[in-house]
Structures are given as C-alpha cells and as structure tokens.
C-alpha cells in the first residue's frame, strides 16, 4: 500500500548509477552537454533541450535549508547534463521560492535557463500580481515562458500574457492542461489563438493527445511540452518489476525511465518533456533519455506492444 516502498530495482540501480554517475559526471558532461537532443520552438526557431524538468512536489520543500541544498544538487545535475527548461507554478506550494533559491545557489551553472511558470487564479488582477510574485520568487527579471495554468480564466490571462510579450517583457506565451482534461477547449485555443506553447499530459498509458492535439499543434506551429511523462510515478509502479527487453539497446535505452521518456520525446510534435524528480540519480536517468538514438515509428509500436503484454 505504501508507494514509498515500491522501487527495489530502482534502489539497486541507484547505488550503481550514483556511484558511476559521480565518478564519470565531469567526463560525461564534457562530451554530453553538446549532444543532448534539441527541438526547435516553431514560433522562433530557437533550439530547446528535449528533456526539461518539472517541479510539482519535487521542489515543494518549504523552508528546509538542508533539503533546499539537496535540490540545488539535483538542479546542478540537470544543467550539467544539458537541461534548459525548468517548469513551475504558483500552485506548487513553495516550489517557485525553492527554485529561486537553487538558481541563486548555482549561479552561472544554471545557464542557459529556460524559465517557465504559470498563472493560476480565477481573478485577472490577481493574475498580474501573481506574475510579479513569481518574478520575485524566482529572482529573475524576465521569464522565457508564461502559461495559463489548467485554462483557469484563460481568456483574460492570455490577453495579459500577449500584452506582456508585445511589450518585450516575455518571450513566449502558453497554456496548460493535465491529466487529459479539457482537450476540446485546448484544441480550440491552439487553432484560434497566437500561442507559442501548449503543455499537456502525454505518456505511454495516456496517448489521447495523439489523435487531435498533437497533430493540431504540429500544423499550427505550436511547441508542445509533455507533462507527467511517468504518470506521476504510476508507470514505474506498473512496469519496473519486469525486465526491459534486449532490443531497447537499439535506441540507447538503459532503464525504464528512459524507456518511458524516449517514447514521449520520439513523437515529432513533442518539443520537450518535463519529468519531475527530487533525486540526483533519477535526474541522471531522466536526462540520459535526451541522448543517443530515439525510437522510430515501428519501434514505438513495438514498445507499446511490449508493455501491453506485461
């Protein structure tokens, strides 16, 4: 019943990966930081690393200085392995404040940071204040991306964000949903509004977005961020006790995290996936998915057949 108990295999892997990761990190970073996969943001052509990081739960550690320092190390690993997009929201408790602490701790290591947060309130004026608060908490003068969170009061907030972009105070505008909610509304917005990004849930057990939202995003030139690529950890609970098949080596997959992530990022519409983690060893695994080969269309089908068979 206690999910805290679930990962015997991951704990074993952790010992190996952490040991090898610590020993080889500088070498790997030197060769790897130039070779992480990137995708172009359609509206500008800017390159963005294909694996980002989320901060729901993982960075909500409150005023605990010791744990904040640990999260700084998680973020250090992220940047050293070529990560760029860090996504958060006012909804995530103290995550924004903790991220601001970590970014300050890391200094120039946190570069290039692609900062992404959200507006989450039903009140339009409160939304403007929330954006100011986010700037203060992150400690950065300008966000790369601001998104309307879960379509809450989306019309008014979108107007605010588009105005900020026009004034040069913001680089990109986006809108988010999660858990497969309000897809019809999101599709209408993708088609009719001048947004740069859309964020939605996409993983091996929830591929609803493949039918309409991903094709619509590709057609309209909207970048797609995939949240919850592990379904909040459920995919590990369901599958990690099984062995990975040998053929995963063909696309440089070494563990289940990379299996799940490579499936997500191999879809041509996906610009970036943002798994969240509070552990350095898990961050190493996640970022590893951004390197090497990616599965092609037939391999993706093979991956789906494999997990269906389990």
């Amino acid at each position: 019943m206690n999910r805290f108990n679930a990962s015997t295999r991951r704990n074993f892997l952790k010992q190996l990966v952490l040991a090898s990761g610590i020993l080889t990190l500088p070498i790997r970073v030197q060769s790897a930081s130039k070779s992480i996969h990137t995708r172009k943001i359609p509206s500008t052509g800017q390159d963005l690393s294909i694996i980002g990081t989320g901060s729901w739960r993982s960075f909500n550690v409150g005023n605990d200085h010791q744990t904040r320092l640990k999260r700084s190390e998680v973020l250090r690993t992220f940047f050293e392995m070529g990560g760029q997009m860090v996504d958060s929201s006012p909804m995530y408790g103290s995550s924004e404040e903790v991220l601001g602490f970590c970014i300050k701790q890391l200094g120039s290591t946190a570069d290039p940071l692609f900062s992404a947060t959200k507006v989450w309130t039903s009140d339009t004026n409160e939304g403007r204040q929330q954006i100011k608060d986010s700037h203060r908490l992150w400690g950065i003068p300008k966000f790369n991306l601001l998104q309307v969170h879960n379509l809450v009061n989306w019309r008014a907030h979108l107007d605010t964000l588009l105005q900020m972009k026009a004034d040069g105070k913001l680089q990109y505008v986006g809108i988010t949903t999660s858990h497969g909610r309000r897809h019809r509304d999101l599709e209408n917005i993708i088609v009719s509004e001048p947004i740069d990004f859309v964020q939605l849930t996409y993983h091996m057990q929830n591929r609803d977005v493949e039918d309409r939202l991903l094709p619509a995003s590709l057609e309209k030139g909207v970048a797609v961020i995939a949240n919850r690529p592990f379904s909040g950890g459920d995919l590990f609970d369901d599958y990690q006790r099984y062995p990975l098949p040998d053929w995963v080596k063909e696309f440089d997959c070494n563990n289940w995290a990379q299996f799940f992530l490579k499936f997500v990022i191999s879809h041509p519409a996906i610009t970036c996936a943002i798994p969240a983690t509070s552990r350095v060893d898990h961050m190493i695994e996640n970022m590893g998915a951004g390197y090497g080969e990616l599965p092609d269309a037939s391999t993706r089908k093979k991956m789906l057949r494999y997990i269906s068979s389990l």
């Binding site: 999910r3 805290f4 739960r57 909500n60 550690v61 744990t67 995530y92 509070s278």
Partner: peptide, 17 residues
C-alpha cells in the same frame, strides 16, 4: 476527475522530513 493524490502538493518524504 481529480483523485485525492492530485491534490497533495508534497511527497511523503517531504512530509516526514
């Protein structure tokens, strides 16, 4: 459509901390 777990903003390890 929200599960109880969706409303929890922190991990168990953070809570125990």
């Amino acid at each position: 459509s929200y599960r109880l777990a969706d409303l929890l903003l922190f991990s168990e390890s953070t809570y125990l901390r």
